[in-house]
Computed example of a mutant assay.
Amino acid sequence: MVSRAAPARQSPPIPAGLTRDHLVEIYRYLRLTRTLEERLTALYRQSKVIGGLFRSLGQEGESVATAYALARGPNQDILSPLIRNLGSMLVMGAPPIEILRQYMAKAEGPTRGRELNVHFNDLEKGYLGQISHLGDMIPVMAGIALTFKLRGEPRVGLVYIGDGGTSTGTFHEGLNFAVVQKVPLVVIAEYNRWAYSTPPEKQFAVKDLAEKAKAYGIPGTTVDGNDVLAVYEATKFAVERARRGHGVHLIEVKTYRRTGHAEHDDQHYVPKDELDWWAKENDPVDRYVKQLVQNAWVEDRDLKGIDEGVKAEIDEATDACVDEPLPPPDSALDGVYIDPPAAPRHWYRGL
């Protein structure tokens, strides 16, 4: 009797038109986001970070996947991140060393120590720093998307809004304007369970944020925000729809904020068993790794190699900038007044 080896297991097709290289690149951005934020947390606890630190732990997947669906490069699509969308900026090309410098208010940072966290732009790479007032980036991005339409450019804008932010007047005004003008804009509504310390049932009466889209006459899609490929597929569809001239699309991503509003927030208002469940059962990075390995799309050793490379990159970036100087005090007026040296050095003490 001739023994025969069992047939090799066939991997299921990779979804959404992606390739193995795409899957690996997405994983690298996920790992880069988490590792960079872990480093920022360590620096914050050493008092090297100036101001607040806002982490995306537990919701990195939706930031990376949504940005990955855009056209990237000079004069391509533009997104506007919120404080928890660091992953989207990395996908668009923000260098980790610039983010480290920005958080530590270094003189060589993107804003020369004058702004904090993700409040900075690189329009050539395709990201626009947020305005702190929640909801305000909806009308800003509506205006940017309108310029794409008026110029006949095949470009798309993407903007993030938190569940609490959908309660603001500017969210309504900006979205209504964008819809009426039929601009190429994709709105990512993040249902992450907590608007600072306010649960969703005290913010709005609808079950799903996507239901709000009905009032504006636009498509509204709800997707599992911790399923990286599902988020990518939904966003890719909305982006290409907008690019073809069909207007605004709202995507609700169901995810979870596993840290406080910022590092200073101890989350005493969140049940511990709730946090534990999301960490153990619904972590977006863990779920993505499991999907890659179980479907034999990527081998575990390849992912470990990426982990090592990302850690080395963050170590190198940290070492390169952690001891850089802060901006000199007498440069505070640079970029504010047309002729700063003409002002008395300590003019403000007379106020």
Rank of each mutant, 00 (worst) to 15 (best):
H249S: 15
R39F: 11
T168G: 09
P184N: 10
S63G: 15
A234V: 13
D315S: 13
D302F: 02
A195N: 05
A238G: 06
I338F: 06
Q59V: 01
V187T: 04
L100C: 09
T19S: 06
I83E: 12
Y232A: 01
H346Q: 13
Q294D: 15
P325G: 11
G335H: 09
G260T: 08
R34H: 06
G61T: 00
D266T: 15
Q102A: 09
G152N: 13
R241Y: 09
V140S: 04
E274W: 11
G309A: 11
T318H: 06
A215L: 05
P219W: 01
E190N: 14
D77W: 03
M89Y: 02
Q294L: 08
A210L: 01
R155N: 15
R39K: 15
S11M: 07
L23D: 00
V180S: 03
G305H: 00
A234W: 03
V310Q: 02
L36C: 01
Q267P: 14
Q102D: 12
G164E: 13
V336A: 09
P328S: 05
L275N: 13
L351F: 14
I131Q: 11
M92Q: 15
Y27Q: 00
R39V: 07
G350I: 07
Y68R: 04
Q10M: 06
I50Q: 12
Y216A: 01
P139Q: 09
Q10K: 13
S331R: 12
M104E: 14
A343N: 12
Y216V: 04
I144R: 13
K290T: 02
L32K: 03
L116N: 14
V2Y: 13
M104R: 12
V179R: 13
R9C: 10
V179S: 12
G143A: 08
K304I: 04
S197M: 14
F177W: 11
K290L: 02
K202Q: 11
Y29G: 06
R4P: 05
P271L: 10
D302P: 06
D21M: 00
A142N: 10
Y127P: 05
N117S: 14
D339I: 09
Y103L: 15
T111G: 06
D300A: 14
V322A: 14
H249M: 07
K207Y: 09
A142M: 07
T33Y: 02
P200I: 10
I314R: 05
D307T: 03
L70S: 10
